[in-house]
């Protein structure tokens, strides 16, 4: 059984059809890259899987660990192990990163019937995981994402992922706006979180993050559906040749 199984998915937002019969299978322990040009539906898929209320499923199904994912509210999906690293993490003044994350970790633990972490235990674990992305403990006391640089925001997303230990992690353009150091930190953080139980879907416009995180599979999305799948080599090919040749190939196969 796949960790995530997307079948014939058609999705619209504000009346516009964005996804048109998308198919995707992701096994536990695998890292898949999803590449595509702007407007191809990459972020729509990410937000839909996370349960964003703006997206409407017209047709198709999404099953997660054998359950109907579309039947679950956003917060239930999260507690069940679905994590989205946001393309644009929201700045939330007045809510400290540490306080928020402890609440989030404990929401998951309660859901799984585990004891909640107290402040000391939380801090011990947080200190370890902060090292993973090269962040300072002071971040825990800062308001969530407020005034963070682009790189800090993305590191903070990966730090949260490490703390929440999801089964399915979706990274939506985590590489956008990162300098090389941040890219390396994010890449090594993600690699450290590759486990046999965890599946990851890495959404990106460019191949450069894939220099650090080598995917098991690569998919190219165009016009709201997967037009080609391959191994890590496909990402490099896209980088060299752009998307145009795939568009032509897709048009030819559709004709």
């Amino acid at each position: 059984m796949s960790l995530l199984s997307v079948k014939d998915l058609h999705v619209s937002v504000a009346g516009n059809r964005i996804l048109n019969g998308l198919e995707l299978e992701l096994e536990a322990g695998q890292v898949h890259a999803l590449m595509g040009p702007n407007g191809s539906g990459k972020s729509t898929l990410a937000l839909l899987l996370a349960g964003h209320p703006a997206y409407k499923v017209e047709k198709g199904s999404v099953s997660y660990q054998g359950r109907d994912l579309l039947d679950m509210a956003a917060d239930e999906r999260a507690r069940e192990g679905v994590f989205l690293s946001f393309q644009y993490p929201v700045e939330i003044p007045g809510v400290s990163t540490g306080y928020f994350l402890k609440a989030a970790v404990n929401a998951g633990r309660r859901h799984r019937g585990e004891d909640e972490l107290d402040a000391m235990d939380f801090l011990d674990i947080a200190r370890e995981q902060l090292k993973l992305v090269g962040m300072d403990e002071a971040f825990l006391h800062r308001s969530l994402n407020e005034g963070f640089s682009g790189g800090e925001k993305k590191r903070c997303e990966i730090f949260q992922m490490a703390m929440l230990e999801p089964r399915l992690a979706i990274l939506d353009e985590t590489d956008s706006g990162l300098d090389v150091d941040a890219l390396k930190a994010v890449g090594s953080g993600v690699n450290a979180l590759r486990t046999p139980e965890r599946g990851m879907l890495i959404i990106t416009h460019y191949q450069r993050l894939l220099d650090y995180i080598v995917p098991d599979r690569t998919h190219v999305i165009m016009g709201g559906r997967i037009v080609r799948s391959g191994d890590a080599e496909l990402a490099r090919e896209v980088e060299q040749r752009g998307y145009g040749w795939l568009e032509e190939a897709a048009a030819a196969s559709a004709a």
Binding site: A74, D75, V90, V95, A104, A107, G108
Partner: peptide, 18 residues
């Protein structure tokens, strides 16, 4: 903000309160 917090596992109630 609500969606961000809910995506991390907080219920609507907890996220609103925060």
């Amino acid at each position: 903000s609500l969606f961000y917090l809910r995506q991390r596992g907080l219920s609507v109630d907890e996220a609103s309160s925060l």
